Computed example of a mutant assay.
Amino acid sequence: MQIMKKYFLFFAVTAFILSCDKKTDKNSNLKILPDSNGRISTLNVVVDNNLWEGAVGNAIRDSLAKPTEGLPQDEPVFNISHLPPKTFSGFTTKGRNILIAQLGDENQFSMQENVYAKPQKVVFVVGKTESDLIHLIRQNSDKIIDNFKSGDVIETIRRINKSLLSDKSLKDSLGIYLPLPTAYRYATKTKSFFWIRKTIQEGHMNIVTYELPYRDFSNEQDVLNFVIKTRDSIGKERIPGPTDGSYLITEEAYSPFINKDMLDGRTCWETKGTWEVKGDFMAGPYVSYLIDDKTNKRLLVLEGFVFAPSALKRDNVFELESILRSVKFL
């Protein structure tokens, strides 16, 4: 119990000292926080060494460093760095994503923003026992991931907004806005179909968007069947492969992940999976959004896919996902 109280006191005192140590704007009486730092999809975990090396650490790794959905090879949701409590001060408190886990007198779970720096997401998990701590981490793992990922999307778009492609084609034809970086170029541009590409060292990143006649769906499987059928049809018609007669299709060996969500106030279905080129040896991950745009009596498709053989692709897919999730209907 003394050990538990020691660490609980450590974090309480640390939080108090840090809050008092921050500069204050005399005119507004608001804390002036330092800028946060850290790469996209990275997470600093502050937890005692003994907990990290045991079942609690395993629960954190299993929940937050599990394989990312929809990628052809295993890449963790987050790259995790472990920080013992005694090292959590100064520069290490400025990470954008921080999880603090500890033993204490009461079970607690909270998600806070801009605690030590800004922009920043901090998740606090306190358990009376190791079993309680593990339960809280596993029970809230989806919330934790969504919380940190939402901050990563905002940070990605903030960086993208520094250098945007100046083009009104999507606005004029589809009535939408996407924050496209200047590194992207149009591969195909028609009145109703757009294929936008960015060249990277290992290959290329792609965005396609188009509209379809409006229809309803009876269930999730109906949506998934429609998405696959439409992707394969559009791929054959609009996205040729490198050899004659080859074209992009959904890889048949793996069933895509599907999730119902909201984008800019509209219902959508997100699917993640892998694509391949029929008639050639090319493949990679994709993320697709089928948006129920009742207002304009249509379905709108936003999709991103990556070709980067032998390279890690998680961060490429996340950039595409961030752009697509930032769609605005005009």
Rank of each mutant, 00 (worst) to 15 (best):
K128A: 02
K128W: 07
T129E: 05
E130T: 11
E130D: 13
S131R: 12
S131C: 12
S131W: 06
D132I: 03
D132G: 07
L133Q: 10
L133K: 07
L133H: 08
L133T: 00
I134W: 01
I134C: 07
H135I: 12
H135F: 05
L136Q: 01
L136P: 02
R138I: 06
R138A: 06
Q139I: 08
S141Y: 13
D142T: 12
D142K: 15
I144C: 07
I144V: 12
I144W: 08
I145Y: 14
I145R: 07
D146Q: 12
N147P: 05
N147G: 14
F148L: 10
F148D: 15
F148V: 07
K149T: 14
S150R: 12
G151K: 00
D152N: 05
D152S: 07
V153A: 11
V153L: 06
I154F: 12
I154T: 14
I154L: 04
I154C: 15
E155S: 15
E155H: 10
E155K: 05
T156Y: 06
T156G: 04
I160Y: 02
N161P: 06
K162T: 13
L164V: 10
L164D: 11
L164M: 14
S166E: 11
D167A: 11
D167N: 12
D167P: 14
S169D: 13
S169Q: 05
K171S: 14
D172G: 08
S173L: 09
S173K: 15
G175H: 11
Y177R: 14
Y177N: 08
P179S: 06
L180M: 00
P181R: 11
T182M: 03
T182S: 01
A183V: 04
A183Q: 03
Y184L: 03
R185T: 12
Y186I: 09
Y186A: 11
Y186H: 14
A187K: 08
A187R: 12
K189C: 00
T190K: 11
T190W: 01
K191C: 00
K191R: 10
S192P: 00
F193M: 08
F193S: 00
F193P: 02
F194R: 00
W195F: 15
W195A: 15
I196S: 08
R197L: 13
K198D: 12
K198I: 02
T199C: 00
I200K: 08
I200M: 09
I200A: 02
Q201E: 02
Q201F: 13
E202V: 03
E202N: 14
G203K: 12
H204Y: 04
M205H: 06
N206H: 10
I207S: 05
I207Q: 05
I207A: 02
V208L: 14
Y210I: 04
Y210D: 09
E211M: 02
P213M: 08
P213V: 13
P213S: 05
Y214P: 10
Y214R: 02
D216R: 09
D216V: 00
F217V: 00
F217M: 04
F217G: 04
F217A: 09
